[in-house]
Design a protein around this nucleic acid. Structure first.
Lengths: 271, 271
DNA sequence: TGATTTTGTCTCGCTATGCGATACGATGTT
DNA sequence: AACATCGTATCGCATAGCGAGACAAAATCA
């Protein structure tokens, strides 16, 4: 498929060949969506730089379809119930597991290591899905299991990616030690979280289990809150300290792609 | 404005005179939004009963505008980030207070009594806005104040409209008595809540303050959860037991209209 | 109150625009 | 290797959507 269509002569931006009616309708919806107050035909026309006739025709169809509604007293227009429902449906359809799966596969193929996807819950990272690595020995966590916030790469990166008060609400009073490499000193742990936030990834060599390591990045949703994590999991000898920059980039890009598909406007951490 | 345009001869449904391109584009978005899996051009064309060309052209523009995105491996289409963002913006713009205000006014004018709007919070109903009634004596609650779940019409109707486990999480261990008419017996209170759920409205004569009564209905949002309440507040002699059916209908209709504008698909209680 | 502006709505001819039919290359299936 | 099916591109044509303008009802002003 995918014919090249190298149209060199007419250096057209890809803003061409879009159906103008559709573009206009969506522009109207966008404009209406981020105004809090109702807005009239004339104001809309001047705001979008087109004629009143056009706007009015579009408003009529959008009202007729239920996506916007018109106030009865003042005759201005506002967002309608159906657009809200559409938005809800859209968010709901962006299911984390299904969206992430192809990117998990790509990450596994790029690194050769096991990949795990986790959701941020009240008391840890719940593993939703894992992909086995390309090696003989089977490592990795079981789907359904819960990783601690303090002794896993996924947990630490989730903590580091959220706001200070959210973090304070989640961090346990005691730092449980799974191995002798787990950080249990409170101050030391906070400093470590700050480092994680700066470097935008986390590892946890030998922290959960001796000989194992993971490299994790956070996944943000449309509200730009860290709702999930993705990680590669392997032996400590394959994920070194610090990890191969190629590995970091691979995990980070997977996280970014998934975040974008979830509606995250841009993959940057909150400050 | 509002020209009558009584077009009697051509008994046309209002499905005419909509811009077909826009209708098609929105149909595509709707279809894509409630499918969880990606979907291809051909499937979409047969599902919507039109040609592949048309669908493909629309998909191209929607992709170009960012509302949907195309998988790179399989060349199928899915919901895009921008649609999710639009939905979020739409929900956010449906602000409860501003949406409710005109309906509150209509309710006040229809009944002559004070009207109050409350939001369901963790430990009670927070009064967001009130409109004074058309009577000499000033009754009603102050905006900002918090009504109890057990001794106000608004609180009881909110409890009755939510699911059993949500209700169990909210109901206080002790039933505080504001007056001697407040229900303090636990079994009796639960039975009363069931009655409220069946009749779909609640009153609280003399329960919060002697001589005062309120008639309240719940307001649902796009998720069909009870997020707010609306009520008329007056003297017990004007809101009788049981209340005038006209009053019940007026409050209920206001609640329904507000719910609809918030994106609630249909004003029915959860079972 | 009456004059004036501004609003939302409607009409009408024109042509740009989105349409259907068809074809093509690529992929996967038997 | 033949086949079915996929997404994509092309191309006239007629229709659908467009702009300009007119109109009445409100809102605003005098």
């Amino acid at each position: 498929m995918s014919k090249e269509h190298g149209d060199l002569k007419s250096g057209h931006d890809d803003k061409a060949d879009v159906i103008q009616s559709v573009a206009m309708a969506l522009q109207i919806l966008e404009t209406l969506a981020d105004k809090d107050a109702d807005i009239g035909v004339t104001a809309l026309a001047t705001a979008l730089g087109t004629t009143k006739s056009r706007i009015h025709r579009h408003l009529r169809t959008l009202v007729s379809l239920g996506y916007i509604s018109q106030s009865e007293e003042t005759e201005r227009y506002r967002i309608g119930a159906r657009l809200i429902a559409l938005g809800k449906a859209a968010s709901g359809s962006a299911d984390l597991s299904s969206v992430a799966l192809p990117h998990m596969r790509a990450l596994r193929d790029a690194t050769g290591h096991a990949v795990s996807l986790g959701r941020v819950e009240q008391d840890g990272i719940r593993i939703l899905n894992t992909l086995a690595g390309n090696m003989q020995i089977e490592v990795g966590v079981r789907p359904g299991s819960l990783l601690g916030f303090t002794n896993s790469a996924q947990g630490k990166v989730a903590l580091a990616a959220m706001s200070d008060k959210d973090r304070a609400a989640l961090i346990p009073s005691k730092l449980p030690a799974a191995t002798q490499f787990t950080i249990t000193n409170r101050d030391e742990f906070w400093a470590h979280i700050n480092t994680v936030r700066d470097q935008r990834w986390a590892t946890a060599p030998n922290e959960a289990m001796l000989g194992l390591n993971a490299l994790s990045c956070p996944i943000f949703d449309a509200d730009r809150t860290a709702v999930a994590t993705i990680a590669i999991v392997s032996l400590t000898q394959y994920i070194e300290t610090p990890p191969d920059p190629m590995q970091i980039r691979a995990v980070s890009e997977a996280a970014e792609r998934i975040s974008t598909q979830l509606g995250c406007p841009n993959y940057v951490w909150e400050s």
